[in-house]
Structure formats: C-alpha cells, structure tokens
C-alpha cells in the first residue's frame, strides 16, 4: 500500500489530500477526511446506490471508487449548494414531490438523477430519466413519489 498526494475539486472547491492510501475509497475520503457525511454509506458493495456522487459529471458509486485513481477530478455531492443547476433542479423536484421518507437513499437518488440530466439533457423524457435510477434502492417510498418527482422535473426552474 502506497500513499500518494491527490487533489480533487469537491463541490467547486479545491481540496488537497495528503496522503491517500491506495485502498481508500472515495466514500471514505468524502465522509471521514472531508466530513461530507451527506453521501451515505449503505452496502459498500455497489448494490444499493446510496453513495452515488458525480465524478466529472458522471454518476459514480463512491464505495467502488478508489480516491487515488481519480486525481484532479470534479466531485459533486449532496452538500453542494448553488453550484450546479442540474443538482438544484433534481433537489427541487424531490422536495416538491416529497419523494423521500427516511432520507437515507435520497442523496444517492438526487445525484443519480443529476447525472442523468447532464448525460441525456434536460429535455430527456421522464421515463428515460426514471429508467436510469434503477440502480438505486429505496425501502420506504415504493418509488411512487420518486416517479412523481421525475415526472414533474420539467416544471422545476433551473
């Protein structure tokens, strides 16, 4: 195990990380080095989607990403406020539809949806966006309110 310095841009700010062991996951870097606890730890095996963040605009499982492999990238988490219009649209859609209960899966869903808005464009059909959330598990809502949030996305101002 080696330790190399790494630099990330997290939610618009540059952070220098020294040193980062080879086996450190982005999830642990965010939560325990940077104190960004909004990214949630669920299964740590890539099955639940609770830790979804964006890395250079792409939806990424932070539990399966090694920090030392992504130097210089732009990471976006649920704590980002006012820095990304797509994130604000996704967040507003979840709020208006009250598409959450316990809230533990919510940051992952919101970031996965944000990533899809970037990948497919804001005018992508709702069913296409919803389909892209299949990798995120929710145990509380039965996904009904989440589907309503996605369906109402177009109504959200950027």
């Amino acid at each position: 195990m080696t330790a190399a310095p790494a630099t990330l841009r997290v939610n618009g700010a540059t952070v220098a990380l020294t040193p980062v062991p080879d086996d450190e996951r982005l999830l642990d870097t965010l939560r325990w080095r940077l104190g960004l606890l909004g990214t949630k730890e669920g299964c740590r095996t890539g099955d639940c989607g609770a830790c979804t963040v964006l890395v250079d605009g792409r939806s990424t499982l932070a539990c399966l990403t090694l920090t030392h492999e992504i130097p210089g990238t732009e990471v976006l988490t649920i704590e980002a406020a006012g820095v990304d219009p797509d994130l604000e649209r996704a967040r507003a859609a979840f709020a208006r539809a009250s598409a959450l209960q316990c809230g533990y899966c919510t940051p992952g869903f919101v970031l996965a949806l944000t990533g899809m808005l970037k990948e497919r464009g804001r005018d992508a059909p709702a069913d296409e966006l919803l389909d892209a959330l299949q990798g995120n598990l929710c145990r509380c809502t039965g996904y009904a309110a989440i589907a309503r949030a996605v369906a109402a996305l177009r109504a959200e101002a950027p």
């Binding site: 949630k40 967040r91 919101v110």
Partner: peptide, 19 residues
C-alpha cells in the same frame, strides 16, 4: 427550494441530517 409537505425534506435534501 420547492416546498415539501415533509418538514424534514430540507435537511435530508441538503445532506445535513445526521444518522
């Protein structure tokens, strides 16, 4: 942010709720 009928929506959507 849009208004939710859930009073906990704002904290949970900001990643501020401590579990």
């Amino acid at each position: 942010m849009s208004v939710s009928f859930r009073p906990d929506a704002a904290a949970k959507l900001a990643g501020a709720a401590q579990y």
